[in-house]
């Protein structure tokens, strides 16, 4: 009760610093929040695309069916491989006729089927990395009856690079503002402590407990952080409502999971508390001498 009253008195004493602190924490979390929103939504999309990543091997026409069956079993046993689909020459032609309607006449008049049979490998989740993809393609190409193995290599790599770049930028920006926020809170709390220097000295002289003396300042830090966290939540929510961002594959954006928003706000409060604790430790701790 007393702590709360005094923490609020702190806001009245240095309103500008408090607003700056809250703003900085808020901004840092808005950046993370918007990234989170995008990441949460394209996470699904990326997963979808990743699932569709296939390694395809085209077979020579003279590959014996016995060898092909054996190879298929071997491929299916690979730890990275989720499924192996065999597309025969006939099926390939069938599909070509269906998919490429413009050319159906051409295919219809063919005497000889020019399309090769093929293996289509899908990778397990957790193995859909550029390295595993090209490694699996290598394994496939090593069979003598496999003429060529293909995968969307550049594309896969770009997808991953994009995602890690976006993560890096969001973390750097968010982290930068979080650092500024911490410095601002350290300063705010330091000012609050200096403004109450006389009272603190008297409390220490008459034998008030350290926790009693420090609590209002710690609370001020935590409340500042919490306010920043809630501000960020509000701004992110506003951005979510006002800007109808649409991704190719996504009809409407999903709001963040509650766990994420709760963790973000809690992290902000914790950050404020830690920043205040640092200041309190430096400014108030001395009076008890070394121990």
């Amino acid at each position: 009760m007393r702590s709360m009253r005094e923490a609020l008195a702190g806001f009245r004493r240095t309103p500008l610093l408090c607003v700056l602190s809250i703003g900085a924490i808020g901004l840092s979390l808005v950046i993370l929040g918007l990234f989170g929103l995008v990441a949460h939504n394209i996470g699904g999309a990326i997963g979808d695309v990743e699932r569709r990543v296939e390694v395809v091997g085209y077979l020579l026409d003279d590959a014996g069916s016995e060898k092909v069956r054996a190879a298929r079993r071997e491929l299916e046993a690979l730890p990275a491989v989720e499924s192996v689909r065999y597309v025969s020459k006939d099926e390939a032609l069938e599909r070509a006729r269906r998919d490429l309607v413009e050319f159906s006449d051409v295919y219809g008049e063919l005497r000889v089927n020019p399309l090769p049979a093929s293996f289509h490998l899908r990778l397990r989740e957790g193995f859909r990395t550029p390295e595993t993809v090209s490694e699996t393609a290598g394994t496939l190409a090593a069979y003598p009856f496999v003429e060529e193995a293909r995968f969307g290599d550049e594309w896969v790599e770009r997808l991953f690079a994009l995602r890690s770049a976006a993560t890096g930028i969001a973390l750097a920006l968010g982290g930068g503002f979080a650092l500024i926020a911490v410095l601002l809170i350290v300063t705010t709390v330091r000012m609050a402590i200096l403004a109450r220097g006389e009272e603190i000295e008297i409390m220490q002289i008459v034998g008030a407990r350290e926790g009693y003396i420090q609590r209002p300042f710690l609370l001020e830090g935590a409340v500042t952080g919490l306010a920043g966290g809630l501000l960020a939540l509000g701004v992110t929510r506003l951005a979510y409502v006002v800007f109808p961002i649409r991704f190719a594959a996504i009809e409407s954006l999903a709001w963040l999971p509650h766990l994420w928003t709760a963790a973000g706000v809690a992290a902000a409060a914790l950050l404020g508390l830690l920043a205040a604790a640092y200041s309190v430790h430096r400014e108030v701790g001395r009076a008890y001498g070394p121990s």
């Binding site: 006389e198 008297i202 002289i205 008459v206 034998g207 008030a208 001498g289 121990s291």
Partner: peptide, 24 residues
Amino acid sequence: RVRRRDIPALRRRVGFVFQDFKLL
């Protein structure tokens, strides 16, 4: 041997008065 957290209790047994009063 004194522990930091015992110091408040010690100070309650030892009153302190200053030349400049230190009143609020």
